[in-house]
Design a protein around this nucleic acid. Structure first.
Lengths: 341, 341
DNA sequence: CAATCAAGGAAAATCGATATATTAAACGGG
DNA sequence: CCCGTTTAATATATCGATTTTCCTTGATTG
């Protein structure tokens, strides 16, 4: 430490600069001398030394599938707001859906002594770490983990009643990739809501985004509209007897719309399309997307808040699940079902 | 350290585990005992203790305007490939174009002892840190900084000769926001190339993306197509005497196309649109975008490579600038200029 | 045979802070 | 005038590694 080169002992300097309670016996004059010198010499306590002693790093690990457009960036905006306010930084690690990495990165980050983990869209089941974990958009019943999830039942209800109200009965579904935790969960909700509102789901109208297309490329590209384009194209070759499709996310919906157009169908004239997420480009693509908005920013904020609370109070109670409300945003991609031909 | 609780001294354990050169006098049998015990007890050296001693953190700071779709995610894909291979992690900090943050974050990260900085799309002029810096898409002549830049002259040449070859003469330009380093640089190239190919630039056809629209919102949204929609709308109200527009980036181009459609103009029938970057959605929007591809992934990789080299060899020579080549991707948004009416 | 050298390992210093214990002087009350 | 308390600090232990220096012991060598 440099500050005491000029006058006092390390102890005193440390007590003063940390405004420690046991420093109340130090007279104001001395305090001023210390703070002034620290200011003048631009003193910064060594991060490693401090962290070594206090055994905390003031940083958290963020584990996500990829730096995808839409989902990641929106959630992280919220996360960053909270972390920054608490003077925390974060390491990002993208596992690219490889199980090996999903298990390896947490270990590596624990070695880096992160104080907690934030999981985005990533299953928490095989993650075992000695620090608090908050999972956003996962649905895992693991101890130690707080889940921030969307109310999928309401989300699906909003989307389907909207379509049914427009006269649609033959509705296709594009399910999410197996890897994504939300996929199964949402599909369950779809089946349940369909029963409730007496809507039949035709299995030949159910297609699925291929998780492989997600990342298996030389030049690593996260989620592109392609993921929706291909399955839609496949469906159109086999069965065109539907008037609407409910897609797993907006990116896929944009790809699906493109495929519909390439097949000579108009949106929403022939087919209505509903997306999910409400990403930025949803409002600006042509046609603009009707979609179920997830409050991603708010989910990121709540997640970070809970994580920081749990870090500050390691023994306290914490919720196992926090449920957020979706909101249907109606735009141009949905319209009345065409008259039967 | 736990390992020596069982047998030897810290020194020996450390030497063996780090495979230190001065450990060649240690017999194989002892080494095996140490490594076996480390394995069995799942020993992990304390990150802080090690970093404190070696004074390096094995992490770098990434400074970017925002977690924007397109630019950030693509560049970072490349960066991450290299960092991961070198067992480095990174802190991300988004300055949101606030000068105060552009100066504060580097200081904060230096306190965190990052070993180097990667600047994305961020001016390096006011950043003064005691570690190596690599700036991607900045153009700053600051010592200590290596710049990774695109060859804008070639980029502009490709775009403009393409439009001119299609018969376009009255070409509008949408310049980038002041804040972004590339903006001015590219505009210079546009003017220069225009002179070279004898193309007149009509000042009333030059519009500009408003940097304020970038981030001045309650719910922080990075770059949305809106940034291109508004200026385009403004131009259309004043002057429709043009047959093509060259936009600063793809997101803005998508917004511009939307504005053109809303004004009853067809793309590319009435107006051809050229974007910049070649982001994922460029190929999937309607119409798909003709654009100048920046090798963003490659730029990220090169940037990270240079940074890691400079960290490993702090005294070595290093290039002040590395220039990358663009590539024009022709898609649907450009076509022959309409006949004069 | 004494001096030299290498092998094998350990002791101690160090990195730069924080936490705990201790000291020395001043003060005040009985 | 002695004893306990407050004031104002300091000394020392500690966090957990790496780095430097040093000490045995046995073998080699001139």
């Amino acid at each position: 430490m440099l500050a005491e080169h000029l006058e006092l002992s390390q102890t005193t300097v440390s007590l003063v600069l940390n405004n420690s309670p046991s420093a109340k016996s130090i007279p104001q004059e001395t305090r001023d001398r210390v703070t002034e010198a620290a200011e003048r010499l631009n003193y910064r306590p060594n991060y490693f030394a401090r962290s070594l002693r206090q055994s905390r790093s003031m940083s958290v690990g963020v584990l996500a599938p990829d730096l995808s457009e839409g989902y990641f960036t929106r959630v992280m905006s919220g996360v960053v707001q909270e972390l920054t306010a608490a003077r925390y930084f974060y390491f990002t690690a993208c596992h690219d859906w490889k199980r090996e990495l999903i298990e390896k990165y947490p270990r590596m980050l624990v070695e880096r002594a992160v104080d907690g983990f934030l999981l985005l869209n990533t299953p928490a089941d095989h993650i075992d770490v000695p620090v608090p974990v908050v999972a956003i958009s996962a649905h895992s019943a693991v101890t130690n983990v707080t889940n921030i999830v969307l109310d999928h039942h309401i989300a699906v209800e909003q989307a389907l009643t909207h379509l049914v109200a427009l006269g649609h009965r033959r509705i296709a579904f594009m399910r999410g990739p197996h890897a994504i935790p939300d996929s199964e969960f949402r599909w369950e909700s779809i089946q349940q809501v369909a029963r409730e509102i007496n809507l039949k789901i035709d299995p030949t109208l159910v297609i699925r985004i291929d998780s492989a297309g997600w990342s298996m490329k030389d030049n690593y590209h996260p989620m592109a509209p392609e993921i929706g384009y291909k399955p839609m194209q496949g469906l159109l070759q086999k069965n065109r007897d539907f008037t609407a499709i409910f897609c797993f996310n907006d990116i896929a919906a944009i790809g699906a719309i493109r495929a519909l157009k390439d097949a000579g169908l108009s949106v929403p004239g022939d087919v209505s399309v509903v997306g999910f997420d409400d990403i930025q480009s949803a409002a600006y693509s042509t046609p603009s997307l009707t979609t179920v908005r997830q409050p991603l920013l708010e989910m990121g904020r709540r997640g970070a808040q809970v994580l920081l609370e749990r870090i500050a109070n390691r023994e306290g109670e914490y919720p196992a699940e926090i449920v957020m409300a979706p909101e249907l945003v109606v735009r141009e991609s949905t319209g009345p079902a065409p008259a039967k031909s």
